[in-house]
Design a protein around this nucleic acid. Structure first.
Length: 137
DNA sequence: GCCAACGTTGGC
DNA sequence: GCCAACGTTGGC
């Protein structure tokens, strides 16, 4: 099962809002590479939820509850959305700073392509971040 | 608040 | 098809 990371500006859509919603349409993506990643998501794929800007940390997990469908927030038929359901909040958020310090995460798209909002993670990268979330170090 | 990186648009 | 201009994202 593939692993993913999605970014959100907490001013636009925060983890707290996600916890209230439980399930949300991940729409508004207007970038081809991110859109292509959305199109490859399979139901029940695991997803990490990252807050950009002021927080700059992975906050928790989610999973794909609905595979790609047309993003109706745009008239343009090129864009896709998926359904995401809430997973678990991390005990300790995994900050960008910690991600940058970890050599197993040196090639993560989060660092290499800072503007990409939907990206695949390798199994190892995913597990490494989950492990980091278990401690505050 | 600044600015680097990068994606998109539009004139030619 | 090239590239300058412009807009947006996101780290700092």
């Amino acid at each position: 099962m593939a692993k993913w990371l999605v970014k959100s500006d907490p001013d636009a859509y925060s983890w707290d809002k996600f916890e209230k919603d439980r399930i949300t349409d991940w729409d508004g993506v207007r970038n081809y590479q991110a859109r292509n990643n959305l199109s490859e998501m399979i139901e029940n794929d695991e997803v990490l939820f990252y807050h950009s800007n002021q927080d700059r940390a992975v906050i928790g997990t989610a999973f794909v509850s609905k595979e790609a469908f047309q993003d109706y927030t745009s008239d343009d038929q090129r864009w896709l959305a998926v359904g995401l359901s809430i997973g678990k909040k991390f005990l300790f958020p995994v900050t960008l700073e910690r991600i940058k310090k970890n050599e197993k995460l040196a090639n993560i798209a989060l660092i290499k392509q800072s503007r990409l909002s939907v990206m695949p993670l390798s199994e190892e990268e995913f597990q490494t971040i989950v492990e980091l979330s278990k401690t505050g170090e």
